[in-house]
Design a protein around this nucleic acid. Structure first.
Length: 506
RNA sequence: GUCCGGAUAGUGUAGCGGCCUAUCAUGAGGGCCUGUCGAGCCCCCGACCCGGGUUCAAAUCCCGGUCCGGACGCCA
C-alpha cells in the first residue's frame, strides 16, 4: 500500500477505516479490561458502518501513523503509564507524556516518560532499534511532550518489571532549555520560583499529589453534604455593598458603578433560608483586601459554606465535625497513593471534637502565660498556646457577642455572649459559624450596634420580614483544612495560583 | 504595616574586605560507555538584585530602593 493510499483507507481485521472516519468523532480507541488483562480495541459508531476490531501490534503502528497524520493526536493514547503491566507482554501501546529523563548509555538508551499517573521506561537498543526512532529520542530535550508507541516487554531489570520497546516516538511539544526549574527532585526550588513556573511545578509528582488530594477533599465534601440533604448553590462574587463589615473589600468597576468582590457568601446563603432551600452549601472563592502577609492568609481563598434551617449551633457543629472526619477518612482511603508520594500519614480525628467555651479558652491562654482580656479576640500566640494544650481539633464556643458578626445569635438570657463557635486545628482556626439571628428587629438592632448602617442591608433584611426560619451555618477555609490535614506549612502550596499582597501573576 | 533574616550561573548553594580569573551540585553543549533507574567518567558553558557611598581595594562594609523568607499585626 502506498503511503497515499494508506492515508485514505486502512483495513483492520475486516473493519475498513476511511480517512473521513479519522476526522469525525466516530472513531474511538477503547481499552477494555477483563480482570488483569487489558486489550485495546478500535470502535466506529455510526448508522451504517459501525463495528469494532481488536488492535494488535501489527496494525497498531499503522493506525497511529495514520491518526497522527490526520491531526487526531488526542486519541492516540491507549494507556496511562500505570495501566500498562508486565502481563501485557507483546502488546502494542501508546503512552503520552513528558520526557522526564533521557539516559544515553551508548549501546542502550533509556527514556523515562512521565504522565499524570506515573512513569514508563522506554528502552532503545542501538542495534535493534529503528535509526529514526533512536535519533528522535537522542535529540529530545527534557520535558518535551512525546507520544511513544511501542511493544510492552516483560523485563525484570526494568522498573515495575516491564519496559517499552518503541516502534515510533512522535514529539508533540518541544521543550526549550534550560528549564525554569528541575522536575526530577534532584535540585530544590524555592516556593517563589515554583510559583513563577507553576505549570512546571505541577508536573512534579509531589506538587501534583497535593492537587489530586485537593480534588478528593472537595469531592468528599460534596458527597457528604449531598448525603446530608444539602443543595449546592452558587452566589454572586460581584456585589453592590460592603456586606458584613469587618474585612476590607476589593473595589471594582461595574459599568458606571462601583462594586466589590464578595468577602463571603454569608448573606446570600442566609437569603436562601428564607428562600426555602432549607439546607444549602457553596464551595467558592472569597476575596479579602486585608494586607495580611502570613503563611495562612490569602487575598483570594476558597470557602466551604453551609447554612441550614431549623438547626441550632450545636446541630451544625455536629455536621462540621462529621464532615472533617469524613474528609480525612476519604482522603486516607482514596488518596493513599498521593499521600505516599507526599510521605504523609493522616490520622482520622475522633468525634465529637472537644468543646471549650471562650472563657475556658482565655483561661488556658492565661495559664500558658498569655496576656489576654475578656472580650479580646485570640491572638496568634494565644491560638498556638491553646492549640498546643489541646493537641487535636476542638471547638471554641460562646464568644463575646461584640467580637462576632451581627448575624450571630446572642443568648437570650446572657446577651453579652452568643451562639457562635470557631472550629480549630491546633495550628489555626479552620472554621467559624453560629446560630443566626432570624428576627428582623433584632437583626436591625445588631447591625446598628456593630456600627453599620441597617439601610445599607435592605436587600438582606427584607428576607427576614416575610417569614425567615431559624437557621445556623458555618464556613470552612478549604485551603486551611487541606494544609492542616497534610501538614503543609504554607497556604500557597495548596493553591494553584495564589493571590497574596505581592503576587498577582501568574 | 512593624521587627528580624536574606538576594551569587536556568535551578539550588559556598564565599562575608585583597587569597574571587567566585565554590560545589544540578543543568545545557560535546565525547566515552548495552541495563541505567539521583547512572558513571572526561572536556566545556553559564552568576555576585538595582542605585549611591566608604576604601588603595567591595560579592563581602554603609545608605536608599525593589523583591524573597520568617514572626507578629491586621483579618466574615
Amino acid at each position: 500500500m502506498s503511503s497515499c493510499a494508506m492515508a485514505r483507507q486502512m483495513r483492520l481485521s475486516g473493519l475498513v477505516i476511511q480517512w473521513w472516519d479519522l476526522l469525525s468523532k466516530r472513531l474511538k480507541i477503547r481499552t477494555i479490561s477483563s480482570g488483569k488483562a487489558q486489550q485495546t480495541c478500535l470502535e466506529r459508531s455510526g448508522k451504517k458502518r459501525s463495528g469494532k476490531t481488536w488492535i494488535n501490534r501489527n496494525n497498531h503502528r499503522l493506525l497511529i501513523r495514520l491518526l497522527s497524520r490526520k491531526g487526531r493526536i488526542f486519541m492516540i493514547r491507549t494507556h496511562y503509564s500505570t495501566q500498562v503491566t508486565s502481563e501485557m507482554n507483546g502488546t502494542s501501546v501508546t503512552i503520552c507524556g513528558w520526557a522526564h529523563e533521557i539516559r544515553d548509555l551508548g549501546g542502550i538508551t533509556f527514556l523515562v516518560v512521565r504522565d499524570r499517573e506515573g512513569m514508563v521506561q522506554v528502552t532503545l537498543f542501538k542495534k535493534a532499534i529503528d535509526k529514526n526512532v533512536l535519533e528522535v529520542v537522542r535529540n529530545l530535550s527534557r520535558e518535551s511532550v512525546v507520544a511513544v508507541t511501542g511493544t510492552v516487554k516483560k523485563e525484570a531489570k526494568a522498573p515495575n518489571g516491564y519496559e517499552l520497546v518503541p516502534t515510533q516516538v512522535i514529539v508533540l511539544g518541544k521543550a526549550d532549555s534550560p528549564l525554569p526549574m528541575d522536575t526530577t527532585g534532584k535540585v530544590d526550588a524555592d516556593l517563589d520560583t515554583r510559583l513563577d513556573a507553576r505549570f512546571m511545578d505541577v508536573r512534579r509528582p509531589h506538587t501534583q499529589a497535593i492537587f489530586r488530594i485537593r480534588h478528593l477533599m472537595l469531592k468528599s465534601i460534596r458527597e457528604f453534604l449531598d448525603r446530608e440533604g444539602f443543595v449546592e448553590i452558587t452566589t454572586p462574587k460581584v456585589v453592590a455593598t460592603a456586606t458584613e463589615g469587618g474585612t476590607a473589600l476589593f473595589p471594582i468597576t461595574y459599568f458606571e458603578r462601583e462594586a466589590f468582590l464578595n468577602q463571603s457568601p454569608q448573606l446570600f446563603k442566609q437569603l436562601m433560608m428564607s428562600g426555602g432551600l432549607d439546607r444549602v452549601f457553596e464551595i467558592g472563592p472569597i476575596f479579602r483586601a486585608e494586607e495580611h502577609d502570613t503563611r495562612k492568609h490569602l487575598n483570594e481563598a476558597t470557602s466551604i459554606d453551609i447554612e441550614a434551617s431549623y438547626l441550632d449551633n450545636e446541630d451544625v457543629m455536629a455536621i462540621l465535625e462529621k464532615l472533617v472526619k469524613h474528609v480525612y477518612s476519604s482522603v486516607a482511603e482514596k488518596g493513599a497513593k498521593h499521600l505516599e508520594t507526599l510521605g504523609v500519614e493522616i490520622t482520622v480525628p475522633e468525634t465529637p471534637f472537644r468543646r471549650i467555651t471562650y472563657d475556658e479558652a482565655i483561661s488556658i491562654a492565661r495559664d500558658n502565660g498569655e496576656k489576654i482580656e475578656w472580650g479580646d479576640d485570640l491572638s496568634t500566640e494565644s491560638e498556638h498556646s491553646i492549640g498546643k494544650t489541646i493537641g487535636e481539633h476542638y471547638f471554641i464556643t460562646d464568644w463575646p457577642t461584640k467580637i462576632k458578626p451581627f448575624y450571630a445569635m446572642p443568648y437570650e438570657d446572657k446577651p453579652e455572649i452568643c451562639r457562635a463557635f470557631d472550629m480549630m486545628h491546633p495550628r489555626m482556626e479552620l472554621s467559624s459559624g453560629a446560630q443566626r439571628v432570624h428576627s428582623y428587629e433584632l437583626l436591625r438592632k445588631r447591625i446598628a450596634d456593630q456600627g453599620l448602617d441597617p439601610d445599607g442591608f435592605e436587600f438582606y433584611l427584607k428576607a427576614f420580614k416575610y417569614g425567615m426560619p431559624p437557621h445556623s451555618g458555618w464556613g470552612v477555609g478549604a485551603e486551611r483544612l487541606l494544609m492542616t490535614m497534610l501538614g503543609i506549612e504554607n497556604i500557597r502550596e495548596v493553591v494553584l495560583f495564589p493571590r497574596d499582597r505581592k503576587r498577582l501573576s501568574p
